[in-house]
Simulated assay, not measured.
Amino acid sequence: MAEDGQMNYKMLALIVVLVIIITGVASFTFFTYFSVSSDEENNENEITSVEDIRPTYNAGDYTVNISNNNQINFVRASIVFELENAELAEELDKRSSQIRDRVISTLRAQNEEILEEPGADTIKGIVQEKINELLISGEITNVWFTELVVQ
């Protein structure tokens, strides 16, 4: 009879451990599934929401000879800036000569690896940094190349 009592405690302990494990696995699966689904829904909303699009400024077209490089002769680029606020477009208009100078000198100073990089993220960051140094009433939040030809 003592063995039957001990067997009941072992069986009860085994059942409790199994219930805890099953509950843990079910909870982990539930939270993982719903947290991934809600993240995907939030990303879709961010992308498709028109209110999230900031003002843009067409910085123009540039054709630049490359210095210090024998293989690449020139770069042709069309650039658009994403602005922090709409008032910044007025300052960019006033500083258009300075902006063209900065973009041209930045493009001329680059090497082949940076210019041919997929996505051109490095050159975008450099152009953004150089232009933001000029600005007083805000900053450029993103740089897009609507055309980038390296030859």
Rank of each mutant, 00 (worst) to 15 (best):
N73S: 13
I140A: 11
N70E: 15
K130G: 10
G60Y: 10
A13P: 07
I123G: 01
F145E: 01
Q110H: 06
L135Y: 07
L92Y: 00
E46V: 13
L134H: 08
F81L: 08
L12V: 07
V17I: 11
I99S: 00
L12C: 07
T63P: 06
E46G: 04
Y57G: 01
I126V: 14
R76I: 06
R108N: 02
I21Q: 03
E46L: 15
I79K: 09
A89W: 14
E113K: 03
V25F: 04
V50I: 08
N42I: 13
Y9N: 13
I47G: 00
I131A: 01
F145H: 00
E90K: 12
S97Y: 11
F81W: 07
P55D: 05
T106E: 10
I140H: 08
E40D: 09
M1R: 05
V127G: 04
K130S: 14
S35G: 05
N58C: 01
L115I: 07
I20H: 01
V16I: 15
I99Y: 03
V19M: 08
I72N: 00
Q128R: 15
E117G: 02
T23R: 06
S38V: 06
N85L: 13
I136C: 11
G138V: 11
D4T: 06
S78G: 02
S37W: 09
E87F: 03
I126W: 05
D93F: 04
S49M: 03
N73E: 14
K130F: 06
D121P: 01
E129F: 09
A26P: 00
T141V: 05
E51T: 08
S35I: 08
I66W: 04
V127R: 05
N70H: 13
L134V: 09
I131G: 00
L148H: 05
V103G: 00
L148F: 11
F31M: 09
S105C: 07
L148E: 02
E41I: 15
N70W: 12
G24I: 09
